[in-house]
Design a protein around this nucleic acid. Sequence first.
DNA 1: TATTGTTATACTCTATAACTATA
DNA 2: TATAGTTATAGAGTATAACAATA
Lengths: 146, 146
Amino acid sequence: MASPRIDPLTLEVVELIGTVVSRYYAEYDQAAAQHSLTGAQARVLGLLTLEPMPMRQLAQKLKCEPSNVTGIIDRLELRGLVERRPDPHDRRVKLAAPTEEGTATALRLRESLDFAREPLARLSADDRATLRDLLHRMLGEDAAEA
Amino acid sequence: MASPRIDPLTLEVVELIGTVVSRYYAEYDQAAAQHSLTGAQARVLGLLTLEPMPMRQLAQKLKCEPSNVTGIIDRLELRGLVERRPDPHDRRVKLAAPTEEGTATALRLRESLDFAREPLARLSADDRATLRDLLHRMLGEDAAEA
DNA sequence: TATTGTTATACTCTATAACTATA
DNA sequence: TATAGTTATAGAGTATAACAATA
């Protein structure tokens, strides 16, 4: 809790990360908007295409209250991108799953996300590998949560 | 528009960046909440402590519509963290500026943001320098916009 | 009793359009 | 006429609290 007095180098890296963050978010929202989706809707659709899951689990992934998921899924369901299925093992839970159209939309969305190509294309393969290693070490073991 | 077919290395780096982004945002919002501020309010307060500026300019920095800034500044002003000053050169513009308490809050907020310390502390100074260079090259010349 | 999902409510952020006061 | 800031409005995300169905 002692006041940090961060060195200039660390400060510069933090600012650079801030730039990456804001650019990443802007591109993500823009890509989502091109498919008439909000950022949250796009994120949910992306998660569900990996694996259908209960509303509760979705809330945990999004780090928000379960009551919010109801609305987001409502809007996606209204557009035919997602459906609610009963869970055969527990009649309380509803499994959110993408429809065929939802899966297709998520795929197109991922392809239109060119954050992967544009900025990273400026780095050589060796540089990308170095960056990967640095980020891995920076994030520690729990980097897989995405 | 040709479908990308991204190589696994690039994909891995993109995922890592996604993890950094979500962690950065989560920490930022949490730090803001500790001071009873929303993320947007904290961002505005941070910008204004660097330099007071017209509402219009603030909207440009936030990449949102000017009408939104009115509300954000309203709420900050209501709490005594920000004030609106007339611009001596143009009676149309209002300069948003932090109050003394606003400046103090912004300072405490910055200190409580330990994203700078915790993850980056795992890297040596050499590694941080390497990371800085890679991010610089990745972001290009326009990395200063933050 | 505890848990899942929902509803009701309130607040913030967001965009759009129309308005005012200046320039 | 153009610009700066505001208001009005509507939609979306968020948290909180209370509720029904199920465990």
